[in-house]
Design a protein around this nucleic acid. Structure first.
Length: 704
RNA sequence: UGCGGGAUAGGAUAAUGGCAGUCCACGGGGCUCAUAUCCCCGAGGCCCAGGUUCGACUCCUGGUCCCGCAACCA
């Protein structure tokens, strides 16, 4: 067993990973938090003397990539590779240094994935099941999961393909739902028999319970899965009817590819293997880490806890691999208190941050030391400025600069003296703090150890006032400055995981050889070189007007995007927390704020495709549990349609029955909160002003 | 609504039943080698209601609100 309970550093090799970036869009600071956090953690392990590497790779498969590639008319592989390359270029710019960065579609991962699946199969953990898969003859494709809806066979309620979410809450196996309809075309779907593969997760309940008892990391990752186990684990369908993905090993699988969540985590192993093959297994042996004994630590977003604490360890156990020692699930990033929204462009993009000319270490410091790992962290340029100016410029930078400058001016470097015992003890205390923080998975603790030591340095130099001693008591002055130079060096060593480039800067100012990244915590107590050059200022203040400018830019952009959106229907799986609750109060209805007129003209025939009818609202009632949704029944002459509209809070529902309205009748049906919506009520503006007719148009007449 | 996490000063964060502490920001004063650091003083807080207890931020019950996941502004 690899997951010892002994503390870091251990004598085993370690591997740190972060959640795979999904090759489907630009990176923003929400993503960066995870990559930077894991990078800092890996570096911190290194300073403890732990042998540790940091690996990752791009997640290339899955439906969203396939769909988006198709929309752009390109090959999914090319599509994903383009993003992959962009990520590879971006990470070093934030001092995120992977020892290996691969992708899930490369040969290593393809082979290893098939190998692991084959093993699971051989071990008897995979079984085949003939399932009825819904098939849309018009769209000529199979309809997995939520691409189908129908009636629950148990309770008769409306149900999605995978769950009776409205009625009895039962998990539905593919093929169970009755009267299936395609959510793509709205047409009745037919069932076709398909053989799919299932992984027996249910066999691992006991193992997983024990696994969780030993698991380290954040509390959310350790506790949340227990409930899922108690509720009963479902076997996991690990194949999909798609072309894009890794083929199921062997002949039988023909058209089936593995579900993206099977091959994605295996990239952790593949990437380790690639590193191992590059440096040689004498230096780092991937098989030792993953199969014999090693310390595996995953940094992930909290949205994918289930994959890393249930499916993943079950797969590893089943295939005879080592399990993770720690899973650190980070919270999300909000911006000015509101959720990130990529569709609303409420985000600070990685590229944008760099274009503003800020040093990456400033963001690293902000993201790792603001709030605990599992907490959601708010980003604002104001808070960014406060942290940079207060802690990095005021405390750390100022102490570094004043100490080294004083030393340079009076001693041309490090004064000849031994470090005093008090200072040595204080530095040792800080080293111990780092060790504890790493074992607590607290990056904030790592950062705090460094800044608190710098703060001690400021107090120390202030208390001893060497500037008053140079004439009266030169020996004592030299002693104090000797201590301060040592503290400065120690701060650099301690800060390196968080701010590697800035720490390297101080390292060089001290005239140290080599890379501070290779230094261990013990080096914090070793004497710096006797002489060094005049120091420079390593941190720069961020001025108020700069922050005002940044805030303005962000606000403008969010406002502009708020109007542009709606255009795109970005499928279902837009990951991250694309919360769109932005309906607050941007009520200035300037012409500038209006959505620009569409440039593309459509022909009459296309217009004819839109079937809008005059309708009369028969009933209107709020949908329980939904903030804004109302269920309406609308008479459109031929029939009465049930539609769901987001108007609950904007209209007095009791007054709606009897009102005429315009209904888009051939809207694709959808299910919202378990209620089928079969049409779309037209409304304008933020207040959902309902469109209607004012003359004698009859119910059921077509709008044209 | 189900599940999980949470609520401590303007913001962030400690305190496992014993005087609610720390950092930033704020007001006043002092020092000053330095990118205004450090020191002193001040103002300001336990979500609400019950209960257990000599004593509750802490334990129990109920409620409110926030954040995720499952399902949303068709």
């Amino acid at each position: 067993m690899s997951t010892g309970t002994d503390e870091f550093p251990t004598d085993r090799p370690a591997v740190v990973t972060c959640g795979l970036p999904y090759a489907n869009g630009d990176l923003h600071i929400g993503h960066l938090r995870g990559y930077i956090g894991a990078d800092a953690y890996n570096r911190a392990l290194g300073t403890l003397g732990q042998q540790s590497i940091y690996v990752c790779g791009s997640d290339m498969h899955g439906t969203p990539v396939a769909v988006n590639a198709e929309q752009q008319g390109v090959d999914p592989e090319d599509f994903a590779l383009e993003w992959h390359e962009q990520y590879e270029e971006t990470f070093p710019k934030f001092n995120v240094e992977f020892d290996n960065y691969g992708h899930t579609h490369d040969e290593t991962n393809t082979e290893l994935t098939q190998d692991i699946v084959r093993t699971l199969d051989e071990q008897g953990y995979v079984y085949e099941k003939e399932i009825q898969v819904a098939y849309d003859p018009d769209a000529d494709q199979y309809l997995p999961d939520r691409y189908v809806e129908g009636t629950c066979p148990y309770c008769g309620a409306k149900a999605r393909g995978d769950e009776c979410d409205e009625g009895c809450q039962r998990h539905l196996e593919p093929g169970e739902v009755e009267d299936p309809k395609s959510t793509i075309t709205g047409n009745p779907a037919e069932y076709r028999e398909r053989t799919h593969k299932f992984f027996e997760v249910s066999e691992f309940a006991e193992f997983l319970t024990d696994f969780l008892d030993d698991l380290e990391g954040t509390s959310n990752a350790r506790n949340q899965p227990r409930q899922w186990i108690e509720d009963g684990l479902q076997d996991w369908c690990i194949t999909r009817d798609m072309d894009w993905g890794i083929d199921y090993p062997g002949d039988e699988g023909e058209d089936l590819v593995l579900y993206v969540w099977v091959d994605a985590p295996i990239e952790y192993i593949s990437s380790t293997k690639q590193y191992s093959e590059r440096v040689g297994s004498d230096e780092y042996d991937w098989e030792q880490v993953w199969r014999e004994e090693g310390d595996i630590v995953h940094f992930i977003g909290r949205d994918i806890i289930q994959h890393h604490t249930i499916f993943w360890p079950a797969m590893l156990e089943g295939a005879g691999y080592n399990k993770p020692r720690g899973v650190a699930a980070t919270g999300f990033i909000t911006i000015n208190g509101k959720g990130l929204s990529t569709s609303r462009n409420r985000a600070v993009w990685a590229k944008e941050y760099l274009e503003e000319g800020f040093h990456p270490d400033l963001l690293r410091y902000y993201l790792t030391t603001t709030g605990g790992l599992q907490q959601d962290v708010d980003f604002s340029w104001d808070a960014f400025q406060e942290k940079v100016n207060g802690e990095l410029v005021g405390t750390v930078g100022n102490f570094w600069y004043r100490s080294l400058l004083f030393a340079y001016r009076n001693y041309e470097g490090t004064p000849k003296a031994d470090v005093s015992e008090d200072v040595e003890n204080r530095i040792n205390g800080a080293i111990e703090d780092v060790r504890e923080a790493v074992n607590d998975y607290s990056l904030r603790g790592v950062g705090a150890a460094a800044t608190e030591l710098a703060q001690f340095g400021n107090e120390y130099i202030q208390r001893n006032e060497p500037w008053k001693l140079t004439d009266d008591d030169p020996e004592q002055a030299a002693q104090v400055i000797r201590d301060c130079v040592q503290i400065a060096k120690a701060v650099a060593v301690l800060l390196e995981p968080i701010a590697p480039d800035k720490a390297q800067g101080l390292w060089e100012q001290l005239g140290e050889e080599g890379e501070i990244a290779d230094a261990h915590l013990e080096h914090a107590l070793e004497a710096p070189p006797r002489t060094f050059e005049e120091p420079g200022e390593l941190f720069e203040k961020i001025e108020d007007d700069r922050v005002a400018e940044l805030n303005e830019k962000l606000e403008e952009r969010v406002a502009a995007a708020a109007d542009d959106e709606e255009e795109e229907d970005d499928g279902d799986e837009e990951t991250e927390n694309d919360d769109t609750d932005g309906d607050e109060a941007d009520d200035m209805a300037d012409v500038d704020d209006l959505e620009p007129l569409a440039e593309d003209r459509i022909g009459f025939e296309e217009f004819q495709d839109v079937d809008m009818r005059v309708g009369r609202i028969e009933t209107a009632e709020g949908i329980e549990g939904a903030d804004d949704l109302a269920r309406l029944e609308v008479d459109i002459g031929f029939e009465t349609r049930q539609v769901v509209a987001g108007i609950k809070q904007l209209h007095d529902l009791e007054e709606l029955p009897g009102e005429k309205c315009i209904l888009l009748a051939n809207m694709e049906p959808a299910e919202l909160f378990g209620v089928e919506s079969n049409g779309m009520i037209l409304a304008a503006g933020d207040e959902a002003d309902l469109l209607t007719t004012h003359g004698d148009a009859e119910v059921g007449e077509k709008v044209q």
